[in-house]
């Protein structure tokens, strides 16, 4: 029972990865990453080992941060900086989708060469897929806001990976949650420094051209 629930949640995470890849609206991407955060929060509850206070606290903390606080921050950033609501990818949606499919194949292929303990469940391949699709989003999207979404997805993948070690090294998982604070700061950076106001654009490709003239 617990095992199949775990599988189902991991599948949902992969589907949200692809949903973010295929969405053309920033708000849709943020909604999907929030859903992924919520699913991620439930994950530690269904991994083997039963409910302890530590696990429940971890779940509540994760859901609160990943499904409510960070997406809320991103929505606020979009509203405040009056960013155009489209993703405007460097590589088209179709191309990103193919890259995502390639990442999916690669993740499962890589995992099948790993030791027996990693091949037991879907945790490791799903973690790898999420990391890789997060990378794809970071690389192929020009807007800073969607890059933050990509970064969050990357971090979600690392979190899933850490889950395999959660019993033995709880500190690693908590460090993963703390990394979220960095994302928060990242988002704040966008808004507080009003990149948009200063340079009429938050496109990262234009940030490389910053110079005094």
């Amino acid at each position: 029972m617990t095992h199949s629930t775990l599988q189902l949640l991991l599948l949902l995470i992969v589907l949200t990865d692809f949903a973010v890849l295929g969405s053309s609206r920033l708000s849709a991407c943020i909604r999907w990453i929030a859903l992924q955060g919520a699913v991620l929060g439930i994950l530690p509850l269904v991994t083997e080992g039963g409910l302890t206070i530590h696990v429940v606290a971890l779940a509540i903390g994760t859901i609160f941060v990943k499904a409510f606080v960070l997406p809320g921050f991103l929505r606020w950033a979009i509203r405040e900086a009056a960013i155009r609501r489209e993703v405007e990818p460097l590589v088209g949606y179709m191309g990103s989708m193919l890259l995502g499919a390639a990442a999916l194949g690669a993740a499962f292929a890589v995992t099948s060469t790993m030791p027996e303990s990693a091949r037991g469940s879907l945790v490791v391949p799903v973690a790898l897929v999420t990391v890789m699709i997060g990378m794809v989003i970071l690389i192929t999207r020009a807007k800073a806001v969607i890059q933050v979404v990509g970064y969050m997805m990357l971090e979600n993948g690392i979190y899933i990976f850490g889950l395999t070690l959660a019993r033995r090294v709880p500190f690693l998982v908590e460090a993963g949650v703390l990394l979220d604070v960095f994302v928060g700061v990242f988002i704040m950076g966008i808004v507080v420094f009003h990149i948009n106001r200063e340079f009429d654009s938050i496109s990262a490709s234009k940030l490389t051209e910053l110079r005094e003239s």
Binding site: L11, F18, G22, A101
Partner: peptide, 10 residues
């Protein structure tokens, strides 16, 4: 359609 196909691929 690519989305539907990736579902099947997955």
């Amino acid at each position: 359609l690519a989305g539907a196909s990736s579902l099947a691929l997955f």
